[in-house]
Design a binder for these strands. Structure first.
Lengths: 344, 344
DNA sequence: TTGTAAGCGTTATCAG
DNA sequence: CTGATAACGCTTACAA
């Protein structure tokens, strides 16, 4: 049995392929990796045959040093185990695969300091683009986010953010405010008058937009009242804990709790149950994002659908597409009413 | 205002730093990236100052070509939006961060052909390691998985698999069989006699182990009966759909459905509800993995806890650690009883 | 169309 | 301890 492609000790280099097929390095490179097809057919075949035989795979790092930029897109998320970011990552990965790009992920753990540090480190990859899906805060800016992003862009990489524009970088937007407003008025129309809002810290754009949108829809348009705004984080635990800040005994049935995200809403639902209150007829709950769990929980969670996977895909497109409509309308969102907010 | 680190046009190179600080390239390299500290303190300072001033960040690709291997670990999962893989990825990312490695992800979409193709492509990164968290099947082997893995290892990268050993590569194991057995006998002890199993295709190791383990615990140890084994996939939709294969009208209350994974179990619970059956007192459901949703659903989902995050971390360790105990016992799993399987 | 050779940014060997 | 200088694997003018 002749030596199989896989029996060789070290990985085959382009040099090996060139020698094996009796052509120059340049020709081999042109056949295997270059774009323009300007090589004689007979040569092409020989090179491909040799590459196949040797099990050649281009060394991406070497290619990157030679070209000056790597076929990489770096993705920054707060927490990859969170379904919100998981879905986004899935969309990004799908797009990257189609475009022949490698995705590298970094986790901010929701720490602004850490985020800036990571961005700086990511620069070392000289990626084609940097996708910021993690929520950005003012603290974040203070830590030097902006200038770090600038040096990134100066290096030729495209910086793309999700949810909020930053500098003159590209951004994939969706209309948190309008979605929340629509949700607020829809719930007011269903008979709710009294609401409590569980938001995130002030200064977090997504949270601020959703809260003010909800306020517009529920109070301004719908004539309801928001009795309290509690501040927490975008996590299930935070949602669960925030309920303990409510005087649950005094909370009249028919009260609506609007949570800044589904993950938080799910935590709230659990906490209500554990505290002996019912979800739906008793205390109504609504969230935002439409993560899978909201469909599987009973009653189902009323929410605003954000097409996370699609947005992830668009983020990737924003990195690679030549033209980009900076003034594109934010993606409109769709309200989804489920059992957690029954008609009153 | 003097020029800030970020105002420069192109990224600063080591060359720039060396020139700026008046030392040789070699010295600058030693100070900034090399390991052994053998440089005079006065030089160190000057180099660091220059690097800081220029906003220098090592070009990882160049470093990789020079060193012959990249500070990368490649992670292969079936679907990053699936909480199972999301948790694993989180653990991997955490470990990688500590070790100063970059994580790159690739998605198999549960397609064996695609998986093998991806592995081949991943080789181009010359990563330090390849982590396979996606379920492997026989089809997979047929597509040439094994030889592809060999060429990977031949290149010096460490191949690590989750859940099942493959060749003489390192593997992080957990005891699916024992966990399922314990679950089976625990449920039998709670009074269940009749079960239906919703598994994955035969040949998928994880599924086979869980099914036979459950069989041992529920039938052999507990004296129960398994009336039917339905084959599907590891997805919520598959779980939902599989219920339609059941003659629900004939299904007596008190029947137990054991699903191959929580994701599948969640789908089953939804389907039961939609079909007008209750979960818990009526039809009991148990899953496997202990994903977050299982805690938030009502009744809570009985399951076997798999410490996914920790396993992900261990996978990363398996890539970088010098010593490795190949004969290590599989990680034992813990049964978690919740409301979906009340005592009868 | 093909080959030669000069880079790309680092590392690492080997003299000083 | 420091500094030339030759790799590393690949791309890409520039020649032939």
């Amino acid at each position: 049995m002749s030596d199989s492609p896989t029996s060789s000790r070290a990985a085959a280099t382009l040099h090996d392929v060139a020698r094996e097929s009796g052509v120059s390095l340049a020709t081999a490179s042109r056949v295997l990796n270059g774009s323009q097809r300007v090589v004689a057919e007979s040569y092409r075949e020989r090179v491909h045959a040799a590459a196949e035989k040797l099990g050649y795979t281009a060394n991406l790092s070497a290619q990157a040093t030679a070209r000056g930029t790597a076929a990489i897109v770096a993705l920054l998320v707060a927490d990859i185990a969170d379904p919100y970011f998981g879905q986004i990552a899935a969309g990004v990965a799908r797009g990257a695969d189609e475009a022949g790009l490698v995705v590298t992920i970094a986790i901010t753990e929701r720490d602004p300091q850490r985020e800036v540090r990571l961005i700086r480190a990511l620069r070392g990859q000289r990626p084609r683009g940097l996708i910021l899906a993690a929520s950005r805060t003012e603290t974040n800016e203070a830590a030097g986010l902006h200038s770090e992003l600038e040096s990134f862009a100066a290096g030729g990489a495209r910086v793309v953010t999700l949810g909020s524009a930053s500098g003159d970088h590209r951004a994939v937007l969706f209309d948190n405010r309008a979605g929340a407003r629509e949700l607020g008025s829809a719930l007011a129309a269903r008979g709710y008058r009294d609401a409590i809002v569980i938001g995130a810290a002030q200064g977090i754009r997504t949270s601020d937009d959703r809260i003010s949108g909800f306020n517009e829809g529920f109070v301004d348009d719908g004539g309801g009242n928001i009795h309290q705004v509690i501040r927490g984080e975008f996590t299930r635990e935070s949602g669960y804990d925030s309920v303990s800040q409510l005087l649950l005994g005094d909370l009249p049935a028919g009260t609506l709790i609007f949570a800044i995200s589904d993950v938080v809403a799910i935590g709230i639902m659990s906490a209500l149950r554990d505290a002996g209150r019912g979800v739906g007829e008793d205390i109504a709950v609504a969230g935002f994002d439409d993560i899978a769990t909201g469909r599987d929980v009973r009653p189902g969670l009323t929410t605003v659908r954000v097409p996370l996977d699609e947005l992830g895909y668009r983020l990737l497109c924003a990195v690679i597409d030549d033209e980009w409509d900076a003034a594109a309308e934010p993606k409109p969102l769709e309200v989804i009413i489920r059992g957690s907010t029954p008609e009153r």
